[in-house]
């Protein structure tokens, strides 16, 4: 690939992806293997290859569509796309970048509401205790998603099988974990 235009600052979304993630979308020649292998492409508003095509155009309306899409949130990061891509266009880290941009710009798709709530509940648990407190996560998430009925039936049998702990495990150096959150995700959200 020619990098002769690198001295120009590319402000398009694909330019930012290249700068921040090191993934060159110009390499994609639209063979569609990623979309064929993606286990959730049928749930997406547009599959990975079309998402890349939209970014290749560099048009603001297409970039807007991508940042507001369900696709970036439905991606499971299963890594099937990159393992089959003949041009090694690394889609999963691109998806991570698009998700954090979509969050930062308050453009996350409403359909992703519960996924984001789940991630936030998950991270809160780590920030507070250092580890994932599963019982707390389920209760916290269900309360945030106002979806208290679903899965409540599972909890007693999980408990009976010794799969749910009542009390969280607290690590000793929780200060260190709080610092890590403060210097990363919490810094950006302010």
């Amino acid at each position: 690939m020619s990098d002769s235009h690198n001295h120009l600052i590319d402000n398009s979304l694909s330019g930012k992806i290249k700068q921040n993630v090191g993934v060159s979308l110009a390499r994609c020649y639209q063979c569609g293997k990623c979309s064929a292998g993606c286990p959730v492409s049928s749930d997406m508003d547009f599959p990975p290859s079309l998402l890349i095509r939209k970014l290749q155009t560099g048009l603001p309306e297409h970039e807007e569509e991508v940042l507001r899409s369900k696709s970036i949130w439905y991606c499971l990061t299963c890594e099937m796309c990159i393992s089959r891509c003949p041009m090694e266009v690394d889609i999963p880290p691109m998806m991570d970048y698009l998700r954090s941009e979509s969050l930062r710009l308050h453009k996350a798709n409403p359909a992703a509401k519960n996924i984001i709530k789940f991630h936030k509940a998950f991270l809160d648990s780590i920030e507070q205790t250092g580890r994932l407190y599963e019982m707390g996560l389920i209760v916290d998430y269900k309360a945030r998603a106002l979806n208290l009925i679903q899965d409540v039936a599972l909890a007693p049998s999980m408990f009976a099988k010794g799969k749910l702990k009542i009390m969280p495990e607290l690590i000793k150096n929780r200060k260190n974990i709080k610092q890590i959150f403060k210097k990363t995700i919490n810094k950006k959200q302010k």
């Binding site: 990061t77 991630h119 991270l123 780590i126 250092g130 580890r131 690590i171 990363t184």
Partner: peptide, 25 residues
Amino acid sequence: PDWNCCGATAAHNMDKELSLSLPAR
């Protein structure tokens, strides 16, 4: 000793530096 959660899917979906810091610790 005193290990913490690796951050799993939640961390790398939300923040790259967090997703690297939790395993790195």
